[in-house]
Design a protein around this nucleic acid. Structure first.
Length: 190
DNA sequence: GCCTGGATCCAT
DNA sequence: TGGATCCAGGCC
């Protein structure tokens, strides 16, 4: 069962970034199902967060999807080669997003091996947002998809991470964000 | 229209 | 530590 869209409309993006740990992320790419547990996330707090693409209310073709009502994907290209998957959260007009930075591969190992060229195993931790999308078969073609659809969705039924099993730290690769670079918005399962 | 650099990854 | 690779966003 996919999580209801109402789940994503919580205004507290930092809460959601933590809560998404342990949830199951499922892709159906051309009929091939891949399932993985979310193991690492980062919160991007919309207009007030210097690290966010929507900082200062920036509204462009790329960021437009961030302003939608929570429960859609935001996928963009980074460094000319890596697709980055975000979950848009919050009510319409509030451009919050959660970056998925790491997963634990559960099902669809064969497809994941083919996509990555690596000898991946069930239960293996996949680190890094670029590696995450590559493993799951996500590209920019999956930008703006509803998480209520048939290609990409989340399920409960992984587990709910206990606070003592969550590591909070500052975010990666956003040194340009000044003070905001120090915010403890990165969450990992221990 | 041009230029800069990036929410990365991997080999060196 | 640097190269891959390309486009968004800022500035002219």
């Amino acid at each position: 069962m996919a999580l209801p869209l109402s789940y994503y409309q919580n205004e507290d993006v930092v809460f959601l970034a933590r809560d998404l740990l342990g949830k199951i992320l499922v892709t159906n790419i051309g009929g091939i199902i891949t399932r993985a547990i979310i193991a690492e996330t980062e919160a991007y707090a919309g207009e007030v967060d210097k690290a966010s693409h929507a900082y200062g209310g920036r509204r462009t073709n790329r960021t437009e999807v961030m302003y939608k009502s929570g429960g859609v994907t935001y996928v963009y290209l980074c460094y000319g080669m890596h697709n980055m998957l975000n979950i848009v959260t919050g009510p319409a007009g509030i451009p919050h997003a959660v970056l998925i930075r790491g997963i634990i591969l559960e099902d669809g190992v064969g497809a994941a091996r083919k996509r990555t060229g690596k000898n991946l195993k069930k239960g293996q931790l996949i680190e890094g947002p670029g590696n995450t999308t590559k493993t799951l078969g996500i590209t920019r073609e999956h930008n703006g998809l509803s998480l209520n659809g048939h290609e990409l969705w989340l399920e409960d039924g992984g587990f709910t991470a206990h606070p003592v099993n969550i590591l909070a730290s500052k975010r990666i690769g956003i040194d340009y964000a000044g003070k905001d670079a120090l915010l403890p918005y990165r969450f990992r399962l221990k």
